[in-house]
């Protein structure tokens, strides 16, 4: 079991990664490494389920931007699922809430 990612699962052609806890300067390097490992498989659609992330600072946001660049670079798509209010607030301050594709509903994210 990885530390930064609580779960990584395959649902059809979609890969779902589930980070958890407080993603700050201590945790984000581990999340970055684990997300890069997920991206090595070049999933055509990657959903990062943020429901269990209780806090995120700019180092966590930077990790998500890196993942976006990686996925976008090989022609895949990245969806962020249901960020908590704290995390969404962080996206808004960084003006990234319009940059990322965000879904609140898992089924809708799967169908997208």
């Amino acid at each position: 079991m990885s530390k930064a990612l609580r779960d990584v699962r395959q649902v059809g052609s979609t890969t779902v990664a589930v980070p958890a806890g407080e993603v700050d300067l201590q945790q984000s390097p581990g999340l970055y490494r684990e997300m890069m490992a997920v991206c090595k498989g070049k999933p055509s659609k990657l959903i990062i389920d943020l429901r269990e992330v209780s806090y995120m600072d700019s180092s966590g946001v930077s990790t998500l931007v890196e993942v976006f660049r990686m996925v976008n670079g090989y022609g895949g798509s990245l969806i962020l699922l249901a960020p908590t209010d704290r995390v969404r607030s962080m996206f808004e301050i960084a003006k990234l809430d319009q940059f990322f594709t965000i879904f609140e509903d898992e089924q809708e994210a799967m169908k997208a």
């Binding site: 700019s58 946001v61 930077s62 990790t63 931007v65 890196e66 962080m90 301050i93 960084a94 003006k95 990234l96 940059f99």
Partner: peptide
Amino acid sequence: LADVRPGGLGVHI
């Protein structure tokens, strides 16, 4: 912030 890239957000926040 129009230049979307990792890092450099701290002071803005």
